[in-house]
Design a protein around this nucleic acid. Structure first.
Length: 186
DNA sequence: TATGCGATATTCT
DNA sequence: GAATATCGCATAG
């Protein structure tokens, strides 16, 4: 159950991505846990070429491509050889907002990073960042923030067909950048 | 505001 | 060939 703990711990932390044009950063406001033995998790069926990063150990970035158009950012959460991860579903943009808007085609601020596919596009995260060590000196890393984290709410996860009733989604209550239907965000 | 559906490409069956 | 950890636009209420 360590993955679930990490998912709630990550709320309020900051993702930083240093790119050629400058620094992009955002505060995590929504996550989902995909622990060991979760049939909805990508690691469940064992190690394959596309999910091998999940088995590297704790604290790596795993980037995954779905639905033909969207990347997802995961933080690996379990020991080496064991598959598990936390999906980052939404962030609140802090630095490089103009850059993000440029790469997302001038979307309104509120829609810039509200959703897993959107935040990866705004942060310029793709397969090139797959496997990066988030706790080491790399272009993509995690930072703490002085800002206080608000109350954390939980709900079922979004967009799954397996193991749908687990309350493994975490979000900061009242934050406008949290994605998903309103009824799940109370 | 809420619900529905098509686009899109990678992976697994 | 089917499924998918989604998005954005369309339509209706």
């Amino acid at each position: 159950m360590d993955t679930v703990k990490l998912a709630s711990y990550l709320i309020g932390k900051v993702v930083v991505h240093d790119v050629a044009q400058g620094r992009l950063s955002g505060r995590i406001v929504e996550t989902e846990a995909y622990p060991i033995g979760d049939p909805a998790g990508h690691a469940f069926r064992g190690k394959t070429a596309s999910n091998s990063v999940l088995f590297l150990g704790r604290g790596y970035a795993h980037v995954y491509f779905v639905y033909g158009s969207s990347f997802m950012l995961n933080v690996t959460s379990e020991a080496h050889g064991v598959g598990g991860g936390v999906l980052v579903r939404a962030i609140e943009a802090l630095e490089g907002i103009d850059l993000m808007q440029r790469s997302r085609g001038g979307t309104r601020l509120i829609d810039l990073t509200r959703g897993p596919g959107r935040l990866t596009e705004a942060m310029q995260i793709d397969l090139a960042q797959n496997g990066m060590d988030l706790c080491a000196a790399s272009p993509l890393w995690l930072a703490a923030t002085a800002q206080e984290t608000g109350a954390i709410g939980t709900s079922v996860r979004i967009g799954l067909t397996r193991n749908v009733d687990r309350p493994w989604r975490f979000y900061e209550r009242g934050n406008p950048y949290v994605s998903g239907p309103k009824k799940l965000n109370q």
